[in-house]
Nucleic acid binder design. Structure first.
Lengths: 282, 282
DNA sequence: CAGGAGCGATACCCGGGCGGTATCGCCCGC
DNA sequence: GCGGGCGATACCGCCCGGGTATCGCTCCTG
């Protein structure tokens, strides 16, 4: 199977429409139909159920969609990492670290300081990204290391090392009835009719249904809370640097959050190894 | 990058010789040279240092070799898993479980029994393989689940669940001076001049240097020990079913061995999930 | 030191396959 | 019943991947 075929299949499987997929790929529809047909013939199975109105995935098609995405990520990662290796040889070598924007700032700063103090440390390019984006960056080679947060982020498929564990707090607008309490139970904040929990985007960019407002980053979140339109439950470390018009109340029964450093298996470049060492040394 | 290019590059990087690589790929040498050249041009970097006698990998080339192998495994896995999904839809569905030959027999039997008793259990095809082979089978899609043994096997890149932990024993021929001791220290058996530790093959099939005899499987190992040509340190469970002319002596200071069940991340088919459940339920 | 062998690069040609346009066949909705 | 939407098919042209022949370079060798 060639990556071209995989790219074509993923496009059709995502669009569920040959015409749109072809447009997205920048080719005409007939070659696309033929490519998918050839793939199906060689695999000896139907991948797409052609109805008169659009198409649907078969069981085998669903499996191939999942596997093809992983394979294409791996190919992309190969290209990116090779390019970076070439760059590092003839210029300034660097590692790319992905971290969730607005989380673990303090830990991150300490980590960068500790690593920079190591002999032979290279430059660290920090990429701040939306929640849940780190895994993708690591998979497709745009990042070499990432800070993830269990149980929110999926650490499957990576090597990880635990760095820090902490409880969670509810962030509320100053003046809210609950904001004066010494602590609250999780159930009390998850279904406040006046302050619903916000909805974060899924990996594909769409939002789950629900009453809460849609948020994409930390600024939007704090702003919405300040406006009295939402509340949130976040790790303790999120209270540092909180706006004046917000308060944080501990939620003892919320699950603990563990910050971990993660890297792709078998890619212990000396730089990544150094970062991991610096992170765990403390 | 197309998988064809990756396959070509891996062939040359492994052979370090364009002619041989071309023969192995079943093509002529000139198209291979051109393909690699094109790859280098598009990546904007040299991947291979052409000396007058053969070639050598550059830094970027070494990175691409590692990444390309992973990517090709992923593509192969995509194809195999799709084929199996298609087969499962129209015939007898099955999961493939990889296990080291001659290890964890008892645990494996119990696991299979426990799973078979579950409602909706499908057939389990057990693939017994050489040590260290399981990870490869899992990576390239020939297996869906595997039993691995930490710290011997590399579990990086998989989801795992611990099943069992045990100490190790030294296996010696009956009559050996150490065989009557209640226990021995690891250092005592690792450098016996008369009974060297055997050498296991590396993933690429070659053997490390050393005094011990080369072994490829469990039968060869026991036979060599019985012949008085080697000794071995193996998990306790290896003493069950030992030949009469061999004895096992506990080695308390040897690292504990943990048997884990592993599966590729994000591939929790119901069958794999059932197996994991059956394995961890006890 | 000249000759030859080994190895990768280059030159050139051929054919298959990929992509394009035109059109068909089918099903659904009005 | 008819038109429109959608995927499949037919057919064509061109590019690119693969083949053969040959070159250029570097060692080794007698």
């Amino acid at each position: 199977m060639e990556t071209r075929e995989l790219r074509y299949f993923v496009a059709v499987a995502e669009e569920l429409h040959f015409g749109r997929a072809a447009r997205r790929l920048g080719i005409a529809q007939p070659p696309l139909s033929r490519a998918i047909g050839g793939l199906e013939r060689r695999l000896g199975t139907l991948l797409l159920e052609r109805g008169s109105r659009g198409v649907a995935l078969t069981g085998a098609g669903a499996v191939l969609l999942r596997e093809a995405r992983a394979a294409l990520d791996a190919v992309e990662a190969a290209e990116r990492r090779t390019r970076r290796a070439a760059l590092a040889a003839t210029g300034r070598p660097a590692v790319v670290l992905a971290a969730k924007a607005g989380a673990s700032d303090e830990l991150l700063a300490k980590l960068l300081d500790a690593y920079a103090a190591e002999p032979g440390a290279v430059a660290v390019d920090v990429v701040l990204c939306g929640p849940g984006e780190q895994a993708r960056l690591l998979h497709d080679g745009r990042a070499d290391v990432a800070l993830l947060h269990r149980p929110f982020d999926d650490t499957a498929g990576f090597d990880t090392e635990d760095l820090h564990s902490e409880g969670q707090v509810a962030v509320l607008p100053v003046g809210h009835p609950l904001s004066v309490r010494p602590h609250v139970r999780l159930a009390e904040v998850t279904d406040l009719p006046d302050l619903p929990l916000p909805r974060w985007p899924r990996p594909d960019g769409t939002f789950p249904d629900g009453p809460g407002p849609q948020v994409r980053d930390h600024t939007q979140l704090t702003q919405l809370i300040a406006l009295g339109r939402a509340c949130a439950v976040v790790p303790e470390s999120g209270r540092t640097g909180l706006r004046e018009d917000l308060t944080a109340v501990p939620v003892p029964d919320a699950p603990h959050v563990t910050t971990v450093i993660a890297w792709p298996p078998h890619s212990r470049s000396t730089a990544v190894a150094g970062l991991v060492r610096a992170a765990t040394a403390r």
